[in-house]
Nucleic acid binder design. Structure first.
Length: 557
RNA sequence: AGACCCAUAGUGUAACGGUAGCACACCAGAUUUUGGUUCUGUUCGUCAAGGUUCGAAUCCUUGUGGGUCUACCA
């Protein structure tokens, strides 16, 4: 008996979606949804930006809306076009396409200037000759109200004249600012007559030397939202205290009422997202660059082999709410494995080799063994791998004196060589130090994979490569960059103290011959080991692979 | 110290006054020519104390804990 009209549970909405759906119900902005992603072009995009990207783009997509890319370039001292290019590239790689051409806050400098003039006309802004120190003192403290600047009540005419001369370049840097006249006694520090324009005789990456005054964030961001008619301006929690100012400017300027909504930024255990701290890792050579595979930058994660869909899924699963959070690294790894399990081709690579000689295998004989490329994908087909008398297996796939539930090789034990024969360990050869240097094994000729009539049941299956056919490859094994889940959260210790000195280990591995053609960026599963990505340093003569993430291992525990 | 924000399994996130769910992690088992994948199951939670109510994770009060704010950065 089936219930024909059973409706499926509607998936829960996050608080932003609830606000949007209510706005749509109320006919606000005729149901239009338009978001924006507003990075400052002074650094590389990282995992935190990925979350902001997903929230902004996917929320808009869900409601048939649009998303602008707007570079928030109001401070020429730190911003440049190289960063712009990298940001655009990273966003496209993550899988998002913004509406039209990318936009710049600097496109609105003239309009912003006119907004300021309008404020002055309304008696709501004034030129202040106070020094930075004096202004800071006037601000007061959170517990004590501020004091008014002696320049607060200049005439509109004088303010107009002075502001025009600021623009004209009549004054040196730091000598004057334009301040909004709000409320020096407000409990919200941001409302205590915030500086909205400062003098900076500096070359801007787009407007060149057209301007020597530049708007502050609070007088650029919200106004840019408004100019672009952004309906929902999604930002992180620390801007909560800016919202009354955001709304105040919209009201006083009588411009399009964009609405700012704050959500908690995503923190990920063992990762940091501070631009300054990330920069230090690069400049002090803790990593090789912004795209070092250990870096939490999109460039680094891309090089590491994290697929864009996995990063997007990770951001979705982390959820969107308004409370502080630290997402476990394991969730990211889960999303990466989930994607890579579906998509990556399998191959066999021995990272820590131990030689095996099949004593009863005809010397010089080579057989082509057929191996599935991806058991999760029947369409991925098969490849062949040469099998010969001398092989390499993983050193930890052999033990002298194994525990009873060890399924691999040991003296007198059998093991299946994946997609090849079952072998029996007859003899252990040791070097002068007593270390195992070689295994002499015999194979069961009737146990060939696919036509096994031996009747032998080997509990273990291990990977292997043919010694004379294997190619050497550099394999870079990565671990988390920090040894503490929240390296920047210790009052008494610097985050650098938690730098993981074992975060990179380089080994020379023996890989199956097919890997000779691996292209940079291509991902593989090295059977029983993990997912790996061909590095940008890789060449056919010197292949290089990065460990993306290891396979789950329920044995080593 | 003041203002504002936040508090649900280990970690995240739902439940919108009416059975506290889901995901990851963990543990156990089944399957497996990857100790992978897949499947099944177990354990574990409403910060505290009052109040309102037939009924509170949800509303109110107080407390506790955490976060944000005092840049001519964004």
């Amino acid at each position: 008996m089936t219930t024909s009209t059973e409706t499926k549970e509607k998936e829960p909405l996050n608080f932003i979606e609830e606000i949007i759906e209510e706005d749509i119900r109320n006919g606000k902005h005729a149901g239009r949804v338009h978001t924006r992603f507003p990075p400052e072009p002074n650094g590389f995009l990282h995992i935190g930006h990925a979350k902001a990207l997903v929230v902004n783009f996917e929320t808009a997509q869900k409601y048939g809306g649009k998303t602008n890319l707007r570079l928030d370039d109001t401070n020429p001292s730190t911003e440049n076009t190289d960063y712009v290019d990298n940001i655009k590239n990273d966003i496209r790689w993550l899988g998002f396409e913004w509406e039209g051409e990318e936009l710049y806050a600097s496109d609105y400098f003239e309009q912003l200037y006119q907004f300021a003039v309008k404020l002055i006309h309304k008696g709501l802004a004034y030129v202040d000759d106070s020094t930075p120190e004096e202004i800071a003192a006037q601000k007061g403290t959170p517990t004590a109200p501020g004091t008014e600047s002696p320049f607060r009540n200049r005439s509109i005419e004088e303010n107009l004249d002075l502001f025009a001369r600021m623009r004209a370049g009549d004054f040196p840097d730091g000598s004057r600012v334009l301040r909004a006249k709000v409320d020096m006694a407000s409990p919200n520090m941001h409302m205590r007559d915030p500086v909205i324009y400062r003098i900076k005789h500096e070359h801007h990456h787009r407007t060149g030397d057209d301007w020597c005054i530049y708007p502050m964030y609070d007088f650029a961001h919200g106004q840019s939202d408004s100019i672009e008619e952004i309906t929902h301006s999604l930002c992180s929690l620390e801007f909560r205290h800016h919202r009354p100012l955001y709304d105040w400017f919209i009201e006083k300027l009588e411009i399009f009422p964009s609405r700012q909504i704050e959500f908690a930024r995503m923190n990920v255990a063992y990762m940091i997202t501070s631009k300054r701290r990330l920069m230090k890792l690069v400049t002090d050579n803790y990593v090789t660059g912004w795209d070092d595979p250990r870096m939490p930058t999109l460039a680094g994660m891309r090089r590491r082999g994290y697929p864009a869909p996995a990063i997007r899924e990770f951001c979705r699963r982390a959820g969107t709410a308004r409370r502080d959070n630290v997402i476990e690294y394991e969730l990211l790894e889960f999303c990466v494995r989930e994607e890579l399990n579906r998509t990556s081709l399998r191959s066999m690579v021995v990272l820590d080799p131990l030689k095996v000689v099949i004593t009863n295998y005809p010397e010089g004989q080579v057989e082509d063994m057929s191996i599935e490329n991806n058991p999760e994908d029947p369409n991925a087909g098969h490849r062949t791998m040469p099998f010969s008398q001398e092989l390499y297996i993983e050193r930890d796939d052999y033990m002298d004196d194994p525990p009873k539930n060890y399924h691999r090789l040991a003296p007198g034990k059998d093991v299946r060589l994946k997609s090849a024969y079952i072998i029996h360990c007859d003899e252990v050869i040791r070097d002068a130090n007593g270390e195992v240097s070689e295994l002499h094994c015999s194979y069961y000729p009737d146990s060939r994979s696919g036509s096994d009539t031996s009747g032998i049941k080997a509990k273990g299956v291990i990977h292997w490569v043919s010694a004379p056919h294997a190619i050497q490859a550099e394999v870079r094994l990565y671990d988390r960059l920090f040894t503490d889940p929240e390296p920047t959260n210790h009052e008494d210790r610097d985050y650098i103290e938690f730098y993981n000195t074992n975060s990179l280990q380089v080994v020379t591995a023996f890989a199956e011959p097919s890997l000779k053609n691996a292209q940079p960026g291509q991902t593989f599963q090295f059977l029983r080991k993990g997912y790996f990505c061909t590095d940008t340093d890789s060449t056919p003569a010197n292949p290089v692979f990065n460990l993306t993430v290891n396979l789950k291992d329920s044995w080593s525990k």
